[in-house]
Design a protein around this nucleic acid. Structure first.
Length: 315
DNA sequence: AAAATCATCAACCGCGCCACG
DNA sequence: GCGTGGCGCGGTTGATGATTT
């Protein structure tokens, strides 16, 4: 963990477009700066990041302030080790959503997109690789190239690997799934990945991607309902300005689409939930995220998972 | 003990989206 | 329709501590 130290790191840093104006500070934040930012936001609320630094007496750009607040200073940010159930949730959401970190973070209370992204890159992707699973597609790696005896990729190797690969954020979900999963370790986690539902889930991901892309959605749901992402990446409302109606009406579009997916023949064929008719199921299916994608119903389900998946019910 | 290497994660960067004039 | 400003997102960098050689 890097401690906020002096501004030495900023001294030699070249100016960036954002901070090019009159010697704005860069690099690690000091406790004094944190205090200034936190007390200002406590008084005035989030938002208006462009003008915030000046008003708060900070020599930072608005972007930097926003990032610091969102990822570190917000009271709702949970610090510390990612728990096992959180890890499960991240894995499952990533399989569904790909690298949409803000979406994933919106489903995990107290965790930020940056934290989840870091955790994925440093822990989970390596973990999956070591288990013979492609972290991008969540499908078995090529058995020819996968050697469980080899250590997982180093950071440098991962970078090299990335360079070789075509740019792709998530699986299309339409690729063929190899039936060769014999190299997958026989543990609880991998039992899930060996599940025959995998194709159905990948289809769900594909459809979700398609819809999100077609609608221009950058987010689906807020977790905390106050400062979570908005629906189209628009201006965020400040504290006390939350517009519940907007949030609700926006998500209605998403939900109605997701609900419509439930009736898709493909999904019925896949029977992704191992439940004959997901429309007529349990209260938890009122969250289209749950009912459509089967999260929380198929396989094991942690309390955190239930909480995250049923958040819409509590609105 | 020193140097080299690895792992972690806060912070930065560029881009795209949307609202507004 | 076009330009600009504000914001948020995902990808990447690099400083720092930990571990290995």
């Amino acid at each position: 963990m890097r401690k906020p130290t002096s501004a030495t790191a900023t001294a030699t840093a070249k100016p960036t477009p954002c901070c090019i104006k009159v010697g704005l500070k860069r690099g690690p934040w000091t406790p004094e700066e944190d205090g200034l930012l936190a007390s200002y936001i406590k008084k005035e609320g989030e938002g208006r990041w462009r003008t915030l630094p000046k008003k708060a007496g900070l020599l930072r750009c608005g972007k930097s302030c926003r990032l610091r607040w969102m990822n570190y200073l917000r009271p709702s940010v949970k610090r510390g080790q990612i728990a096992d159930d959180e890890e499960d949730l991240i894995l499952r959401l990533h399989r569904l959503l790909g690298n949409r970190w803000s979406l994933i973070a919106g489903r995990i209370p107290g965790r930020t997109d940056n934290e989840i992204k870091n955790y994925w890159n440093t822990h989970l992707s390596k973990k999956l690789i070591s288990q013979g699973i492609d972290p991008r597609t969540h499908k078995p790696l090529d058995p020819q190239s996968f050697d469980p005896s080899k250590p997982s990729l180093s950071k440098a190797n991962l970078s090299q690997e990335r360079l070789k690969e075509p740019m792709k954020t998530v699986s299309s979900g339409l690729e063929e799934t190899t039936s060769d999963s014999t190299h997958i370790a026989n543990n609880k986690e991998n039992e899930y990945f060996q599940n025959d539902d995998i194709n159905a889930h990948l289809d769900a991901q594909h459809l979700a991607n398609h819809f999100i892309a077609s609608q221009g959605y950058t987010g689906l749901l807020n977790y905390d309902g106050t400062s979570g992402m908005d629906l189209r990446g628009n201006q965020r409302l400040g504290i006390g300005e939350a517009d519940d109606q907007d949030i609700t009406s926006g998500t209605d579009d998403v939900f109605s689409f997701l609900n419509s997916l439930i009736n898709e023949e493909a999904f019925q064929q896949h029977q992704i939930l191992n439940v004959p008719n997901v429309n007529s199921t349990a209260p938890s299916s009122s969250d289209p995220f749950v009912s459509t994608f089967g999260l929380g119903i198929t396989g094991w389900e942690s309390p955190l998972m239930s909480s995250a998946l049923n958040q819409n019910d509590s609105k």
